[in-house]
Design a protein around this nucleic acid. Sequence first.
DNA 1: ACTTTTATTGAATTTTAATTCAACGAATTG
DNA 2: CAATTCGTTGAATTAAAATTCAATAAAAGT
Lengths: 188, 188
Amino acid sequence: MTRKEQKEERRQAILMTALTLFVERGYYDTKIADIAAAVPMSTGLLFHYFESKEDLLLELVKMGTQGPGSVAYDDKIPPDVYLTKFLDSIFSFAKEQPWVFNMFVFMGLVRRVGMPEEARRLALSADAVTPTVKLIKKGQKDGIFRKGNADTMARCFWASVQGIMEEMSADKEMKTPDPEWIVSMLRA
Amino acid sequence: MTRKEQKEERRQAILMTALTLFVERGYYDTKIADIAAAVPMSTGLLFHYFESKEDLLLELVKMGTQGPGSVAYDDKIPPDVYLTKFLDSIFSFAKEQPWVFNMFVFMGLVRRVGMPEEARRLALSADAVTPTVKLIKKGQKDGIFRKGNADTMARCFWASVQGIMEEMSADKEMKTPDPEWIVSMLRA
DNA sequence: ACTTTTATTGAATTTTAATTCAACGAATTG
DNA sequence: CAATTCGTTGAATTAAAATTCAATAAAAGT
């Protein structure tokens, strides 16, 4: 089985390398040759692992749609505490698990412009907003969150997180923000 | 002078068309032929107005670095009121002056990934954060803003705004958020 | 009306980067 | 230790898109 395992490991190595480069420079500025050189391997060999550049991209997006995007919500803890904790863990991943962090940023990039249409559609199908809408409504009922359109609030919340994480991604020196700042957007 | 004026108008038309397409689909997914067709004009003619695709991009970035990014700050009004007003006007531009709105989103895209390196450098040179840092420090002294690293706070503030505006740009149906939500990030 | 300049087009060319391929070395199998 | 399969390379091919160009039409100047 060593042979198959090797291949799978190599595949993962390529995926992780590509993820980093896509996040750092964007999809189109990252050439297949760049990915191959960074792994490292020859350009041609990369095509033994992936059909095409877009195939590689799509694999990454698939990983992203499954990943640990949402920690299970436990009804016992208040919504604000839950969101704060979630942000806390995501931000700390920036240092400890660059992979998770990069994937989060990557998925945000894919959902917006600058990548092939199909990737965007796939990314859009994994929806982080809906669960948050419920959470926000609960918080509003409990009086800890402000009044307002819960859907818009949820989208703004995640859009903010996305924006901040892209900023952190662009400048690794940047100090990690206090999750409370962001949750404050929602507080009554 | 009609001749020169015509030319200048045509130039502007191309720039505005390109801006819209770049924001909608991204730089690399927008082909010169797409821009030309949308203006409309022939592909070749576009090169009488701009040296190259990148030249066109750079012109847009230059416009963006000058534009009305920052309304002059008047010491008399409190920082929180100022920022709220600023967001209010930017958000309302979404409907009234799509141009301003698009430019704002565009500059954010350029600063991050997905466009040629030189454009990014140019965009990065126009710094929106520094003035806001001062504003935040003032607010902290006045006790209306929370404690914390003012630089990080300013960057998070703008990153949030950027994220939200990209979200609005991607979905024109989205309800405009209440500026107060975002300013709440900063409040004590 | 005639000449010169500018605008315009669409096809030809060039460039760039993805993709394919023929050849070779290493590992696995019988 | 053959025979076969798999991993690997780098050069050749192809595809897509930017850019150039020769030719023509329209406008401006004389």
